[in-house]
Simulated assay, not measured.
Amino acid sequence: MRTADWTESVSVLDRVTAVFDAFGEHDEGLGVSELARRANLPKSTVSRIAADLVAQRFLDRDGDRLFLGVRLFELAQSVEQPRRLRHFALPVMTELRDATGQTVNLAVLDGADVVFVAIVHGEPTCTPLARIGGRLPAHATALGKAILAFAPEDVVGRIIQGRPDVHTRHSVSEPSAFLRELVDIRRLGVATEKEESVNGRACAASAILGQGGAPIAAISATGSVSNVVPDRIAPAVHAAAITLSRRIAAAGQH
């Protein structure tokens, strides 16, 4: 139970959390007075917080009633999708790691970057390419290129128009060369790269496709250039992506 002393000492974040916590599962909207009573906060404080949250779409207002906003559901969905994806992917990633001996990564496209959502470590002497939640530029990674090869033209166009910087001296940033590479990747089903994103690293990646062939994510096997020949591990990576795409489709997740 939040007490009067609590209301005098808490941070702004605590107060916002108290407002969110005040909503029950079956509430059909709350007025400011009821929201303030449940949150144990002054009505004037709740009124100010609610106005800011409505402006940011974290709350919706209908007359004098407030509801949890659509942006909260959008954020929850963005968290739920990687969780479901990891659930399906981890067994396949482990099999790919065992088959290649290399670290296996799962990543999704976010803007001009790939974001790593799961990693199964392989070659112990090789420094990890990234951490979960880490980012690398999509144009300089096999993971990113595998996704972009199946992405809508406007998505690819935005990245090209952004004139991506050369990440290493091996990166491909010239637009026409990049587009030609995407055509080849789409035909072969596999993207490869050698020291384009990180010096000393080589990688093969393949897109995980959903309904209508839309890319959901990409899976890769990566290791040191002394141990990995991308073309040799490409068939195993492509097979893993096909398996994962089928499992996700069979579960009706996308």
Rank of each mutant, 00 (worst) to 15 (best):
T168D: 07
V104F: 02
L96I: 06
D14R: 01
G212W: 02
L179P: 00
E34C: 01
N199T: 13
D231Q: 13
S226V: 13
T100C: 12
P128F: 05
E193M: 11
G210S: 14
H26S: 15
V225T: 14
R38Q: 10
R135I: 07
V46F: 05
V54T: 07
A202T: 03
F73V: 12
G134N: 03
E193F: 08
A18N: 01
R84Q: 12
R169P: 15
I216W: 04
R38K: 08
F73S: 12
K145A: 06
E80V: 14
D5I: 15
A149H: 02
L136W: 10
A140K: 01
L182P: 08
H139F: 07
P124M: 04
R48W: 08
L188I: 15
A118N: 03
V79W: 15
R186C: 01
P164Q: 04
L188D: 13
R158L: 07
P164A: 03
T192Y: 02
A239E: 13
V172N: 04
F178D: 00
A251I: 06
D21K: 09
L136M: 12
L59H: 08
V16T: 04
K194M: 13
L53A: 02
H26W: 10
P164E: 04
T125S: 13
R97E: 14
G24V: 04
F116A: 01
E74S: 10
